[in-house]
């Protein structure tokens, strides 16, 4: 007989028709080693509570339906072993099951995925074929291994939305493009079969786009397919700087950073806002600035900031980068 354990599943429940607010159910079941969280949920639905509502389909980690928060972390229920998960449980033999963050909850563990689809559409997440329709299917493009490698990994994405759920920027701004759609945009933009790189890049580099990413790396950390999403984000920023958006706020912000590091070895936050946004927009931020002033949270101006010790070393790095055409 295989090892067995009695385990409590503490599951987030909410039916908008009946419940004023969400609550947690505790369901205890005995499971043997080797059972996935999805199998446990299926067991509960079939034998204990048929009202428990969640999405699941392929059960093999490729369709992306069963994204959930398990013990607070976004992942696929079908790829998560119950016994392994117990090692991370805060309470002994208790597993916490909740819906993904940053989405509207429709019922229990089911969230509304439509906003993600809308973003895919808004940011042109497709190859816009160079060929006219009547030419399609006649001959292959020849694609070098090098070009192929640029987008191959990005096409692993199954849109499970674990990255969207973990993204800190999404929490602040629900209209933010999201890591998944950034990855798609990058994947399309490096594909030589596509004909709308510039248009896409313009959109991606405007408000709520690629410049809003805060580099928290949570998307990379939690990608169930281990995709280096940040490589895509950096790639988009690089092309943005080079082509469409030299004058965009994001690009100016990045440039200001670089200038400061070169000059002082650290950030001069006092003038960062005006260098990024100009002089008009910050007027609307005056109340916040006054508040900051009163609380003595205003950073010192440039002339009061000295260079960091051994600034020469930093500048040396810049010289090296310049040599390499960065």
């Amino acid at each position: 007989m295989e090892e067995q354990k009695e385990i409590s599943f503490r599951i987030y429940r909410y039916n908008p028709h009946f419940d004023k607010k969400p609550y947690y159910d505790n369901i205890r079941i005995t499971l043997e080693k080797g059972i996935t969280v999805l199998r446990a949920l299926n067991f509960i639905k079939e034998n204990i509570d048929s009202k428990l509502t969640f999405r699941a389909f392929c059960q093999a980690g490729i369709c992306g339906s069963c994204g959930l928060k398990i013990n607070g972390v976004s992942k696929l229920a079908c790829m998560t072993q119950v016994f392994k998960e117990l090692e991370d449980s805060k309470e002994e033999n208790v597993i916490l099951i909740e819906p993904l963050n940053n989405f509207t909850i429709m019922r229990d563990l089911v969230v509304d995925m439509d906003p993600l689809v809308e973003k895919l559409k808004y940011y042109y997440s497709w190859v816009n074929p160079k060929m006219p329709v009547h030419e399609l299917g006649k001959k292959e493009y020849l694609i070098s291994e090098e070009k192929f490698q640029e987008y191959d990994q990005a096409t692993d994405c199954i849109l499970c939305a674990s990255c969207v759920s973990e993204c800190l920027m999404m929490e602040v701004n629900p209209n933010y493009i999201s890591p998944a759609v950034l990855l798609k945009s990058y994947r399309m933009n490096v594909d030589e079969r596509d004909s709308m790189q510039k248009t896409r890049l313009k959109k991606v580099t405007s408000d709520g786009g690629v410049w809003d990413c805060t580099h928290c790396y949570k998307c990379v950390e939690h990608c169930v397919k281990n995709i280096d999403i940040m490589k895509g984000i950096q790639g988009l920023r690089n092309s943005g700087m080079k082509t469409v958006s030299k004058r965009s706020e994001g690009a100016k912000h990045a440039k200001a950073f670089i200038t400061d590091i070169k000059r002082k070895g650290r950030l001069v936050e006092f003038t960062l806002i005006t260098r990024t946004l100009g002089f008009i927009k910050p007027i609307f931020m005056l109340p916040m600035m006054i508040k900051m002033l009163l609380r003595r949270r205003v950073p010192p101006p440039s002339f009061m900031m000295s260079e960091i010790p051994r600034i020469e070393k930093v500048r040396k790095i810049f010289r090296k980068l310049k040599k390499k055409n960065f």
Binding site: W126, P129, E135, Y141, I143, F148
Partner: peptide, 13 residues
Amino acid sequence: IRELENLGTPFSR
């Protein structure tokens, strides 16, 4: 297969 390729399917090469 060629049509899918033209539309962006990342076939191995």
